[in-house]
Design a protein around this nucleic acid. Structure first.
Length: 416
RNA sequence: GGAGGGGUGGCCGAGUGGACGAAGGCGCCUGACUCGAAAUCAGGUUCCCCGCAUAAGCGGGGACGGGGGUUCGAAUCCCUCCCCCUCCGCCA
């Protein structure tokens, strides 16, 4: 949610940004509703003040044991009038909020307007001296992932990790959690569902309703990213200023319907309905949130680097930003067999956009203000898994275990 | 799922229809005392919205779990939903 004061003085700018980000919100209607709303608030407040006077007068008389039917009748009428005004105000406010929730965040000045900007490539260009197998074929051959049985249990694109596949997946999760915990992040293990209010708080709703799994009876949504559950951990709270930045790391399973994305290029682990992710999240002071963004980016890069994978960092252009983000870096790892870059991490500063929706504030001596929220995958496992299989496979059909994962796999150097 | 009890400010806790400030305590801030601190004393200490001034501020309105209602007037009465506790039932 945007700052209303900013919105009121920047209608045209907001209109432009909404367009650039590919959203369609009727800004003119919003502007009109805001005007009507404020007019009505003024009117209601004035009449309420009047009624408060009358009410106090009546109370005073009552205490003296007296009565004034005329005064009460006047108050009765005024009260009825206010009821009508407030009813109108409520309906206008509802419309106003409804529209407001569809406005994406404003963007940071450094965000490109046209093309993604590749900031750096890290790690040597890597080629196998033999004909490598793509991750799908290799994983099935080693019995690590059973896509057919996964589909039997749930549906297509619900991968079933099995044997060494399951162990490697768990090793990855545990390794990354430990990595970030050692570097000062507080670990949380959150619910894998969240309610409607939480989803509005981080900006998944209203826009992404169709992209999430919904549990109708309880009106829960399956967690699409721990960004949601961790951000809402402090919803409607006042955080002490000296505690910022508050850094969390969370493992969650993530669920996405991926509506409309079936077809080519979705074989294997590239695009799945359920996946694992270790997420970093920061509640930061507004004055230091862009330093925090760089910090989180570095944190995610370090974990990928430690796995010995080649990657690049991309600064996303305006039209590729997520709804709540003001600035986003993507990290993509190199898959040497399929010869492509795969996104494994998204590092974003949402500034006060989510904090405003979710009412997450901090207190200083003289005022209160919204925190800035930042999230970074640290990182998502499926495509990391792909990169590992494609990078570390050997001509004899075995897989070399990346060194940092060996302690999590009984010290094993090769699979099987 | 059933029965009962509860949800009040940063925290504890009083308050069952009317008094400008929701008592009191704790914590915190400022000042006095002190070489300094503790103790003591005095004062201050919620958030949101609208408007004016925008450096602090001032005026008005609203908020006692959320929403709705009764009433001239609701923390207090009614309806509804959520959450916590106790007991019972069911169940992994």
């Amino acid at each position: 949610m945007l700052d209303l004061k900013y919105l009121r003085t920047n209608w045209d700018k907001v209109k432009h940004i909404v367009e650039l980000r590919g959203e369609s919100v009727d800004i003119d209607e919003l502007k009109q509703l805001d005007h009507q709303r404020r007019q009505l608030v003024k009117e209601c407040d004035t009449k309420r003040a009047e009624l408060n006077h009358l009410t106090r007068e009546i109370g005073k008389l009552k205490r003296e044991g007296r009565d004034d039917p005329k005064l009460i009748e006047t108050a009765r009428q005024l009260s009825a009038e206010i009821s009508h005004l407030e009813e109108r105000l409520r309906s206008i406010e509802a419309k106003f909020m409804h529209l407001l929730l569809w406005i994406p965040n404003i963007v940071h000045a450094s965000v490109p307007l046209d093309e993604p900007k590749i900031l750096r490539e890290v790690g040597k260009p890597f080629e196998h001296k033999f004909d490598g197998l793509d991750h799908f074929t290799f994983a099935e051959q080693l019995g690590m992932i059973d896509f057919v049985r996964g589909a039997k249990i749930a549906g297509s694109n619900f991968p079933l990790y099995i044997g060494w596949g399951a162990r490697l997946e768990r090793a990855l999760i545990n390794y990354m959690l430990d990595f970030h915990v050692k570097r000062g992040f507080k670990e949380v293990f959150t619910p894998f569902v969240a309610n409607r209010q939480s989803m509005i708080g981080t900006g998944q709703l209203p826009k992404l309703e169709d992209d999430m799994y919904h549990i109708e009876r309880e009106d829960f949504f399956l967690n699409p990213t721990a960004e949601v559950t961790v951000a809402n951990l402090h919803r409607e709270e006042m955080l002490p200023e000296e505690k910022l930045p508050l850094r969390y790391v969370a493992y969650t399973a993530c669920f996405r319907r991926e509506a409309g994305s079936y077809g080519r290029g979705t074989r294997g682990l590239k695009r799945v309905h359920q996946f694992n992710k270790v997420e970093l999240f920061s509640f930061a002071h507004p004055e230091h949130s862009y330093e925090e963004l760089e910090f989180l980016l570095n944190e995610a890069e370090e974990v990928i680097k430690s796995l010995g994978l080649r990657y690049r960092v991309v600064l996303l252009p305006i039209h590729e930003l997520g709804f709540a983000a003001a600035k986003t870096y993507d990290i993509e790892v190199w898959a040497p067999v399929s010869r492509e870059w795969l996104e494994v991490s998204s590092v974003s500063n949402c500034e006060a956009f989510q904090a405003r929706r979710a009412k997450i504030k901090f207190r200083t001596k003289h005022r209160t203000d919204y925190v800035h929220t930042l999230n970074a995958s640290g990182v998502a496992t499926p495509r990391t898994f792909i990169a590992i299989l494609e990078t570390y496979q050997n001509p004899d059909g075995s897989l070399t275990v990346p060194e940092v994962l060996r302690p999590y796999l009984d010290g094993k150097k090769r699979i099987p």
